[in-house]
Amino acid sequence: MSSSLHHLKVFTTYPHECSYLLGKEATTLFVDPKQEVDQNLYTSLSRMGFRRSGQHMYKPNCASCQACVPARIPVADFMPSRNQRRVLKRNADLRVQSLATLEAREVYPLYEKYISARHRDGDMYPPSVEQFKSFLGQAWDFTRYYCFSAGDALKAVAVVDHLNDGFSAIYTFFDPADDARSLGKFVILWQIELAKQLNLPYVYLGYWVQNCRKMDYKIQYKPIELLNQGEWVRTEPR
């Protein structure tokens, strides 16, 4: 598939307050919700910078700002830093379970704890079961939920869509009280290793936003590729 959207119906939202940059307005481009999105189309859309949230495929479409830049990790060339190797070692005891669906009653308490501790200033606060189900509970055919546990304690859940050329890291929530594990970092590193094992070339991380502190973690995984004017370019963001 080319980078053209001519065969798809897309819609644009009205301008609204940007979730990432203070004082900025944002508009969002959505693929028609009635459009059937199979794994092939999803892969092509991801290569074009689209992202999934709930049942929607979207990408920023702001007239006066291009701060949201799609980012992906080329896993074959990834080499963990010393700090990242320590993170992997600290979490070597975790057990992982792969699920096609999630039982909200089993994982929602961890989600609620995470959002309340880490994202009180965001759109998802205050959390609710309904919001959780809408955002993360509607699995597509190629969605997997990876649950990481230590003993009987659930430590992290990663929502991952499997593409033809890699993984789309949709969302991760984890125990915010267990800072020593650096669970957010670990789950990305784990996805990189799994992609390598499956001979998949990329882990798509969503959008890197320059000057947004919450997005800085995405450029700690090197090398990184950013989508620039329709081309994926390996780069070292400042």
Rank of each mutant, 00 (worst) to 15 (best):
C65D: 13
N83P: 08
K59R: 14
N61S: 15
G54F: 14
D77C: 05
T101N: 08
S53M: 11
A63L: 15
S98E: 07
S81M: 06
D93T: 11
E112G: 08
T101R: 12
R52Y: 08
A71W: 01
A67N: 15
R90W: 10
M79R: 06
Y58E: 11
Y111Q: 04
V87Y: 04
P60E: 09
P80R: 01
R52C: 08
K89R: 06
A67F: 12
Q55W: 11
K89G: 03
T101Q: 13
L88V: 02
K59D: 07
V75L: 01
L99C: 08
E106H: 05
Y111K: 04
Y114M: 04
V107Q: 05
V96L: 04
D77M: 00
V69D: 06
R52T: 10
L102H: 05
C68V: 09
S81A: 04
Y58R: 13
G54R: 09
R85L: 04
A100S: 14
P109D: 03
D93W: 07
Q97T: 06
A71R: 02
E106S: 10
P80I: 01
Q66W: 11
R86E: 06
N83K: 15
P109V: 03
H56R: 14
I73T: 01
C65Q: 07
N83A: 12
R86F: 08
R82S: 06
Y114V: 02
Q55T: 13
N61A: 15
P74W: 00
A63S: 12
S53T: 10
C62I: 10
K113Q: 07
L94S: 00
A104C: 11
M57F: 15
C65A: 11
E103F: 10
R52H: 09
A63P: 10
K113E: 04
A67Y: 12
Q66F: 13
A92W: 03
D93I: 12
R85F: 05
L94A: 00
N83R: 14
R86T: 01
A104Q: 12
L88T: 02
I115K: 02
Y108T: 03
K89T: 04
L94Y: 01
